[in-house]
Design a protein around this nucleic acid. Sequence first.
DNA 1: GTTCAAAAGTGGTCTGACCACTTTTTATTA
DNA 2: TAATAAAAAGTGGTCAGACCACTTTTGAAC
Lengths: 215, 215
Amino acid sequence: MDKKQENKKVFLEIVNQLRELIKHEGIQPGEKLPSERVLSERLNVGRSSVREALRSLELLGLIETRHGGGTFLSAVHSNQLVELLASFILQENKAVEDVHIVRRMHEKEAIRVICSEQSLRSLPVWESLFMKLELENEIVRDLLLRELMIASGNRLALKIWIQLAAYSATPLKKLSTEEEKPMLQMLIKSLQLGYEREALSAYENWIHYLRNSSS
Amino acid sequence: MDKKQENKKVFLEIVNQLRELIKHEGIQPGEKLPSERVLSERLNVGRSSVREALRSLELLGLIETRHGGGTFLSAVHSNQLVELLASFILQENKAVEDVHIVRRMHEKEAIRVICSEQSLRSLPVWESLFMKLELENEIVRDLLLRELMIASGNRLALKIWIQLAAYSATPLKKLSTEEEKPMLQMLIKSLQLGYEREALSAYENWIHYLRNSSS
DNA sequence: GTTCAAAAGTGGTCTGACCACTTTTTATTA
DNA sequence: TAATAAAAAGTGGTCAGACCACTTTTGAAC
């Protein structure tokens, strides 16, 4: 029982080891990482596992791979923003609150955008989400937020949000019927009607409830 | 030249094939995907390549994997998500406009934060900026925006903004005395008084003016 | 010093194997 | 018959080795 049931994916553990290695070796952006075979040997894992970890980093824009050339820490020019975000998010976890604030800011802005666009308000996804509330499944939390970000139509904001969301996950506890559901219902309905103030109010109440109930 | 030489990332191609397969098979959110071995056979690729593609989808939250159980399509409602994310990840197009929008969003949020905090409103920097307007120097534009971001106190937001600002620089043309200065005066004064609506209104008028006059 | 072909290094992919875990099936028992 | 337990099948997780395609380095010939 003392053993923490860390359901963490092993390849994510390798990602962390890679981070420490990069930090320890002092590898700078644009410089080359050890080859997959060397990493495999030094981290005592199979090469395929190393590759899966590298895939994750590549998808985040942290590294670039060149066939036959090697793997490189992303240069500042290509994806400085992502590099910045990742270094901020992955390294020191003192600014958790900042991440939360920026994430909520993006979500609120998405609500504003959607409320101001009739075509976005009338998307069928809102009605679908409204009905999914009856399932009382906690997944609707992420679902709703993700759809908000997607519908707002800003890909950069979506990209930023995805990384922020990965860092500050929503609670996994069961959806509260008597407390949480009404807030979400109001949020969605206000959204569909274009009532920006009411939608934002419902959103903030919801976030406030989530923070208080999870602590 | 007929060769599709642009398709660099093969595992992203597999991601596309997986999307088509899901669509063709009519696999609904929450339902199970074919096993890795079956996918490997049907897509005519190695199982390791399938796994790398699945890793990408998993990192995006599109699928969930359960050890010994299988791979499941996330309870994400629409193809909207898959399509958008896929096209986004594949970087089919880059939107300069998005950078501008996100940058302005951060600036507006900074204004809101400052207006809501008496200690921030009373910072001497605003009065200093107000006086600098008389110099009619175009530098005050960047100066003002930067101070806004710094004063709002969110380090992550500041770092993001710095990167965004590097992509979409403010105009270099001379400060307009009869048009631009009044807007900035109103912005600063509203900020100091905590008039959020007026401050945001002045800000948006200003941005609108900058965009139209520079084109 | 230049040029260029061979060698070494590296990522990309496939195959097969084994393990850990889950689900299904089958056999046993009350 | 129904419940329970054991066995089997299915599936993801990981590793090792091999080969290919491409890039970089090396070194010999000029």
